[in-house]
Simulated assay, not measured.
Amino acid sequence: MTSNQAIPLAPRKAEEDVWKYPRPPALQRTPNRLRVVWTSAEGIETVIADTTEGYRVLETSHPPTYYLPPSAIKVPLTKTSRQTFCEWKGKASYHTFNPPSSSRPINDRIWSYPSPTPGFTPIKDYLSFYASTGMSEAQAGGSWRCFVDDEEVGVQEGDFYGGWITSNIRGKMKGGPGTWGW
Protein backbone atom coordinates (compact mmCIF):
# COMPACT_ATOMS: atom_id res chain seq x y z
CA MET A 1 0.00 0.00 0.00
CA THR A 2 1.22 3.47 -0.87
CA SER A 3 1.88 5.85 2.00
CA ASN A 4 -0.29 8.97 1.97
CA GLN A 5 2.84 11.05 2.53
CA ALA A 6 4.52 9.56 -0.58
CA ILE A 7 1.79 11.01 -2.80
CA PRO A 8 2.54 14.57 -3.92
CA LEU A 9 0.48 17.48 -2.67
CA ALA A 10 -1.21 19.50 -5.41
CA PRO A 11 -0.44 23.21 -5.63
CA ARG A 12 -3.19 25.52 -4.41
CA LYS A 13 -4.73 27.55 -7.26
CA ALA A 14 -1.66 27.51 -9.51
CA GLU A 15 -2.43 27.97 -13.19
CA GLU A 16 -2.31 24.55 -14.84
CA ASP A 17 -2.37 23.42 -18.47
CA VAL A 18 -4.15 20.09 -19.01
CA TRP A 19 -1.64 19.26 -21.77
CA LYS A 20 1.14 19.25 -19.17
CA TYR A 21 -0.63 16.60 -17.09
CA PRO A 22 0.91 13.12 -17.38
CA ARG A 23 -0.15 9.97 -19.14
CA PRO A 24 -0.48 7.54 -17.49
CA PRO A 25 -2.38 9.65 -14.94
CA ALA A 26 -0.96 10.83 -11.63
CA LEU A 27 -2.57 10.86 -8.19
CA GLN A 28 -2.15 13.89 -5.91
CA ARG A 29 -3.44 14.83 -2.49
CA THR A 30 -5.26 18.15 -2.64
CA PRO A 31 -5.13 20.86 0.02
CA ASN A 32 -8.43 22.27 -1.25
CA ARG A 33 -11.83 21.98 0.37
CA LEU A 34 -14.10 19.87 -1.85
CA ARG A 35 -17.88 20.12 -1.54
CA VAL A 36 -20.95 18.84 -3.32
CA VAL A 37 -24.23 20.58 -2.46
CA TRP A 38 -27.76 19.63 -3.51
CA THR A 39 -30.23 22.49 -3.99
CA SER A 40 -33.87 21.44 -4.18
CA ALA A 41 -36.37 23.09 -6.52
CA GLU A 42 -37.57 24.99 -3.42
CA GLY A 43 -34.05 26.36 -2.84
CA ILE A 44 -33.23 24.21 0.20
CA GLU A 45 -29.57 23.18 0.32
CA THR A 46 -28.29 19.82 1.52
CA VAL A 47 -24.58 19.09 1.79
CA ILE A 48 -23.89 15.80 0.01
CA ALA A 49 -20.14 15.80 0.71
CA ASP A 50 -17.54 18.05 2.31
CA THR A 51 -13.84 17.38 2.90
CA THR A 52 -10.30 18.73 3.00
CA GLU A 53 -8.91 15.18 2.74
CA GLY A 54 -9.41 14.55 -0.98
CA TYR A 55 -7.31 13.45 -3.89
CA ARG A 56 -7.24 14.41 -7.52
CA VAL A 57 -6.25 12.47 -10.61
CA LEU A 58 -4.48 14.31 -13.42
CA GLU A 59 -4.39 12.97 -16.97
CA THR A 60 -3.28 14.62 -20.20
CA SER A 61 -6.07 16.68 -21.82
CA HIS A 62 -8.48 16.29 -18.87
CA PRO A 63 -9.38 18.63 -16.04
CA PRO A 64 -8.70 17.10 -12.61
CA THR A 65 -11.04 14.44 -11.31
CA TYR A 66 -11.55 14.72 -7.54
CA TYR A 67 -12.03 11.85 -5.09
CA LEU A 68 -13.61 12.37 -1.66
CA PRO A 69 -13.23 9.96 1.27
CA PRO A 70 -16.28 7.96 2.39
CA SER A 71 -16.22 9.95 5.67
CA ALA A 72 -16.98 13.11 3.66
CA ILE A 73 -20.34 11.79 2.47
CA LYS A 74 -23.18 13.30 4.52
CA VAL A 75 -26.15 11.50 2.89
CA PRO A 76 -26.97 7.86 2.14
CA LEU A 77 -25.83 6.52 -1.23
CA THR A 78 -26.89 3.23 -2.79
CA LYS A 79 -24.57 1.15 -4.95
CA THR A 80 -26.01 0.40 -8.40
CA SER A 81 -25.27 -2.49 -10.77
CA ARG A 82 -23.36 -0.28 -13.22
CA GLN A 83 -19.64 -0.89 -13.57
CA THR A 84 -17.03 0.47 -15.95
CA PHE A 85 -13.35 -0.22 -16.40
CA CYS A 86 -10.47 2.27 -16.42
CA GLU A 87 -7.20 0.99 -17.80
CA TRP A 88 -5.34 2.94 -15.10
CA LYS A 89 -7.51 2.67 -11.99
CA GLY A 90 -9.43 -0.60 -12.50
CA LYS A 91 -13.13 -1.41 -12.16
CA ALA A 92 -15.43 1.41 -11.06
CA SER A 93 -18.71 0.96 -9.18
CA TYR A 94 -21.51 3.52 -9.34
CA HIS A 95 -23.92 4.95 -6.80
CA THR A 96 -27.37 6.53 -6.55
CA PHE A 97 -28.28 9.61 -4.56
CA ASN A 98 -31.93 10.12 -3.56
CA PRO A 99 -32.32 13.87 -3.20
CA PRO A 100 -34.53 15.24 -0.44
CA SER A 101 -37.78 16.71 -1.80
CA SER A 102 -37.41 14.90 -5.14
CA SER A 103 -39.12 11.77 -6.35
CA ARG A 104 -36.38 11.08 -8.91
CA PRO A 105 -33.06 9.50 -7.90
CA ILE A 106 -29.77 10.64 -9.39
CA ASN A 107 -28.31 7.41 -10.77
CA ASP A 108 -24.75 6.61 -11.77
CA ARG A 109 -23.31 10.14 -11.38
CA ILE A 110 -21.07 9.11 -8.46
CA TRP A 111 -18.43 6.41 -8.74
CA SER A 112 -15.73 4.71 -6.70
CA TYR A 113 -13.03 2.06 -7.04
CA PRO A 114 -13.54 -0.75 -4.50
CA SER A 115 -10.35 -2.55 -5.67
CA PRO A 116 -8.17 -0.02 -7.51
CA THR A 117 -4.91 -0.88 -9.23
CA PRO A 118 -1.75 -0.62 -7.08
CA GLY A 119 -0.91 2.98 -8.05
CA PHE A 120 -4.36 4.16 -6.97
CA THR A 121 -4.91 2.22 -3.71
CA PRO A 122 -5.14 5.48 -1.69
CA ILE A 123 -8.50 6.23 -3.39
CA LYS A 124 -10.00 2.83 -2.55
CA ASP A 125 -13.71 3.46 -1.84
CA TYR A 126 -13.29 7.23 -2.27
CA LEU A 127 -16.12 8.78 -4.25
CA SER A 128 -16.02 10.99 -7.31
CA PHE A 129 -18.91 13.09 -8.58
CA TYR A 130 -19.74 14.31 -12.03
CA ALA A 131 -20.03 18.10 -11.84
CA SER A 132 -23.72 17.86 -12.82
CA THR A 133 -26.65 15.48 -12.41
CA GLY A 134 -26.76 14.88 -16.16
CA MET A 135 -30.35 16.11 -16.41
CA SER A 136 -32.20 19.39 -16.22
CA GLU A 137 -33.12 20.89 -12.84
CA ALA A 138 -36.79 20.33 -13.67
CA GLN A 139 -36.19 16.62 -14.34
CA ALA A 140 -34.03 16.16 -11.25
CA GLY A 141 -36.15 18.27 -8.91
CA GLY A 142 -33.10 20.41 -8.18
CA SER A 143 -29.39 20.43 -8.92
CA TRP A 144 -26.07 19.72 -7.35
CA ARG A 145 -23.12 22.03 -7.43
CA CYS A 146 -19.52 21.03 -6.89
CA PHE A 147 -16.93 23.33 -5.34
CA VAL A 148 -13.16 23.50 -5.02
CA ASP A 149 -12.68 25.81 -2.07
CA ASP A 150 -15.40 28.44 -2.69
CA GLU A 151 -15.31 28.23 -6.48
CA GLU A 152 -18.17 26.45 -8.21
CA VAL A 153 -16.66 24.16 -10.83
CA GLY A 154 -17.50 23.95 -14.50
CA VAL A 155 -18.57 20.73 -16.19
CA GLN A 156 -16.24 18.79 -18.47
CA GLU A 157 -17.90 18.48 -21.88
CA GLY A 158 -19.50 15.19 -22.84
CA ASP A 159 -20.89 12.64 -20.47
CA PHE A 160 -18.04 10.15 -20.17
CA TYR A 161 -15.37 11.90 -18.12
CA GLY A 162 -15.98 13.52 -14.75
CA GLY A 163 -13.42 16.30 -14.49
CA TRP A 164 -14.06 19.50 -12.59
CA ILE A 165 -13.02 22.72 -14.31
CA THR A 166 -11.87 25.64 -12.16
CA SER A 167 -10.65 29.08 -13.25
CA ASN A 168 -6.98 28.06 -13.00
CA ILE A 169 -7.30 25.13 -15.46
CA ARG A 170 -6.28 25.90 -19.07
CA GLY A 171 -6.05 24.09 -22.40
CA LYS A 172 -8.33 22.29 -24.84
CA MET A 173 -9.97 19.45 -22.92
CA LYS A 174 -11.09 16.05 -24.06
CA GLY A 175 -14.74 15.07 -23.75
CA GLY A 176 -16.69 17.19 -26.22
CA PRO A 177 -17.61 16.42 -29.84
CA GLY A 178 -14.58 15.69 -32.01
CA THR A 179 -12.18 15.09 -29.09
CA TRP A 180 -12.45 11.30 -28.73
CA GLY A 181 -9.74 10.55 -31.26
CA TRP A 182 -6.93 12.47 -29.56
Rank of each mutant, 00 (worst) to 15 (best):
T2W: 13
S3R: 13
N4L: 14
Q5K: 13
Q5C: 09
I7Y: 03
L9P: 12
A10H: 00
P11S: 14
R12V: 04
R12P: 03
A14P: 04
E15S: 10
E15W: 04
E16R: 06
K20S: 14
P22V: 07
Q28Y: 10
T30K: 00
P31R: 01
R33A: 04
L34T: 02
V36I: 15
V37R: 02
T39F: 08
S40C: 10
A41F: 08
T46M: 13
V47Y: 10
D50A: 07
T52G: 03
E53W: 01
Y55F: 11
V57D: 00
L58D: 05
L58G: 02
L58S: 03
T60P: 03
Y66K: 03
L68N: 05
L68S: 05
P69V: 10
I73N: 03
K74S: 10
V75Q: 07
L77V: 12
L77C: 05
L77R: 04
T78S: 14
T80S: 10
T80F: 08
S81L: 12
R82C: 12
Q83E: 14
Q83A: 04
F85S: 06
E87P: 07
E87L: 09
G90E: 02
K91C: 10
A92C: 14
A92D: 06
Y94P: 06
Y94S: 05
H95N: 04
H95P: 02
N98G: 06
P99D: 11
S102K: 11
S102C: 07
R104C: 07
R104M: 12
D108L: 09
I110F: 08
S112K: 06
Y113S: 06
P114K: 12
S115E: 14
T117L: 09
G119C: 12
F120K: 10
F120L: 09
P122K: 05
I123W: 02
I123S: 02
D125S: 15
F129L: 08
A131D: 01
S132G: 09
S132V: 04
S136K: 07
E137W: 04
A138N: 11
G141N: 08
G142P: 00
G142F: 01
S143Q: 13
C146Q: 04
V148S: 06
G158I: 09
Y161P: 04
Y161Q: 05
G162C: 06
G163W: 01
I165R: 01
T166D: 00
K172G: 10
M173I: 07
M173T: 09
G175T: 14
G176W: 11
W180L: 11
W182P: 07
